[in-house]
Design a protein around this nucleic acid. Structure first.
Length: 493
RNA sequence: GUCCCUAUCGUCUAGCCUGGCCUAGGACGUCACCCUUUCACGGUGAAGACGCGGGUUCGAAUCCCGCUGGGGACACCA
């Protein structure tokens, strides 16, 4: 059996959002499922719209997701693009360059071959002429598109020109989409499209067919928006005498508003999600699930990368579009956070703590980490759960201390008695604190709940914290006592 | 305008190919209860969907036709 080869072929005209990365995940998963190769190809055929840094973004982000390319741009290619950055990978491979702007001679060669075989022709119509023709067609409510004026004019090669494909209209085309099954056109509603632009760059149509063939790609995964131009590609393969790839047209990923994902949607690119404290493995798992399910009656939705590779198939990909639901991502992220080994969790929290200026001794963080881990859904939430461990003035939520069976007088009693009992405690352990504080509540005829709220706010300033006794033990007796005393001062007389 | 894709709970989906096991299953979210020192975690339960209309059939979420809704393409953009 032929080696399965897939590619992720972004055009560097902007920054990928999670929908774009999903395409990459699927292509990667498919290749790895069959033990094949996954390549990166840069489709920079639109010189005007190319944005610097876009390629780096793709490579960096995919690396963050733990995805490596088997073949792709070499260091030299990146340099040629002016995209040579510190730590840039040198991927390379046998069928490069993997950058379209570096393959211009090849496209010219193929275009000329097509002209020679009568499948294409040179055209020197000006943009103005095309514009006028187009307007007239619109006015007559006809199908817009090039009339084929230059088909028989035999425009000389030394004049500025484009190369157009001779579209046969009166014939049917069909292919079997790996996701949707047979798709058929009885007539082709497309006109003579440009293959090679006047600046010598190919259009997507020429480049994608040429490269997928040259790079021995077996499966082309792409967005559904390409489905309607598939006849062009099929006809091109035919004219060139090449065997077409297997196409798989992926459904769209929409935002919660039902509109296609774009920069307008918040948190749609992986960088933003990372800054918001999401784990790459959670994002990858979640995004893969928008539009794919294992099927066969399976309910599984949490997968390791290996399971994903093992279970992924194009048959399991959905035909209809899906919505990126940030709320469910949050749930899944929490799940992944809880699954992390504690040390790993702490390590991953570090950048977020630094960012918030929260610095606490490692052993103190370690003592509470397991409790914190269970209470957060994103890494950004960690800082506010442990910043009470720092030696800085507390801002206490005094108003939350009272109410619900707790008044000024009772709060004072709880704090005073706690002070009295905690002070002489032989060892300031979790168990001892537990016993003591429960004793305090009982002695005052209070339920533990309200009593502990008062203590929690007195010592941490907040209503939401890791468990009380553990927090006290980590904080240490001196700080606990002095914070309680401080609070007593704050209580109205 | 023409062509193409698509349609199961609010959302992600299973089931559809190979009709009956579907009084349509799971997950997120929502609500209630339990656990409980806050918040979480965990547990139990509830509400919640086959777009509409025809047909085929003993029987249709599943097959066929039509309609409607949604999306896309028709560029020297990808």
């Amino acid at each position: 059996m032929k080696e399965v080869r897939t590619r992720f072929a972004p055009s560097p005209t902007g920054f990928q959002h999670v929908g774009g990365f999903r395409t990459a995940f699927y292509a990667y998963l498919l290749a790895k499922h069959f033990g094949g190769k996954f390549l990166l190809r840069v489709e920079d055929t639109d010189r005007e719209r190319t944005v610097p840094g876009a390629i780096r973004f793709v490579i960096d982000e995919l690396k963050w997701f733990g995805i490596d390319f088997d073949e792709g741009p070499s260091k030299a290619d990146l340099q040629a693009l002016g995209e040579d950055w510190e730590g840039a990978p040198d991927i390379g491979g046998p069928v490069g360059p993997y950058v379209q702007s570096l393959r211009l001679p090849r496209y010219k060669e193929v275009a000329e071959q097509l002209v020679a075989s009568g499948h294409a022709y040179r055209c020197d119509c000006t943009p103005e002429m095309l514009e006028r023709e187009r307007n007239e067609q619109m006015a007559r409510r006809e199908l817009p598109g090039y009339s084929g004026y230059c088909r028989t004019r035999n425009v000389p090669a030394d004049k500025p020109h484009v190369v157009r494909f001779k579209m046969p209209t009166k014939r049917s085309v069909s292919f079997v989409d790996a996701i949707r099954g047979k798709v058929q056109w009885d007539t082709i509603p497309l006109k003579d499209t440009v293959l090679l632009k006047s600046d010598g760059f190919p259009t997507y149509h020429l480049a994608v067919v040429c490269d997928d063939h040259d790079m021995n790609i077996t499966h082309a995964l792409r967005g559904i928006e390409w489905l309607s131009s598939t006849p062009i590609h099929l006809l091109l393969y035919e004219a060139l005498g090449w065997e077409p790839v297997t196409f798989a047209h992926l459904p769209v990923v929409n935002g919660t508003d039902g509109k296609k994902l774009s920069k307008r949607h918040n948190a749609t690119n992986s960088k933003e999600l990372r800054d918001q404290g999401y784990l790459p493995e959670a994002i990858m798992n979640f995004v893969t699930l928008i539009g794919w399910a294992p099927g066969e009656g399976s309910d599984q939705e949490v997968f390791t990368r290996e399971e994903l590779i093992q279970k992924f198939s194009l048959q399991g990909v959905n035909e209809s579009s899906g919505v990126f639901d940030p709320v469910k991502l949050q749930w899944m992220n929490g799940l992944y956070i809880r699954k992390l080994p504690v040390e790993e969790f702490m390590k991953r929290c570090q950048p977020f703590l630094d960012k918030e200026g929260v610095s606490v001794p490692q052993e103190q963080f370690a003592a509470l980490a397991a409790h914190v881990q269970e209470r957060v859904k994103t890494l950004t939430e960690v800082a506010s759960m442990i910043d009470f461990l720092m030696d800085r003035p507390l801002e206490r939520q005094m108003d939350a201390m009272l109410g619900k069976g707790m008044d000024n007088e009772k709060a004072r009693q709880v704090l005073n008695l706690s002070l009295e009992r905690l002070g002489p405690l032989a060892d300031f352990s979790v168990e001892a604190i537990d016993q003591t504080l429960r004793g305090v509540a009982t002695e005052l005829g209070l339920k533990p709940g309200p009593a502990f709220v008062a203590l929690r706010i007195a010592v941490t300033g907040k209503t939401i914290t890791p468990p009380l006794f553990e927090s006290f033990a980590v904080l240490g007796r001196d700080r606990v006592l002095s914070r309680i005393r401080e609070t007593l001062e704050l209580l109205p007389q």
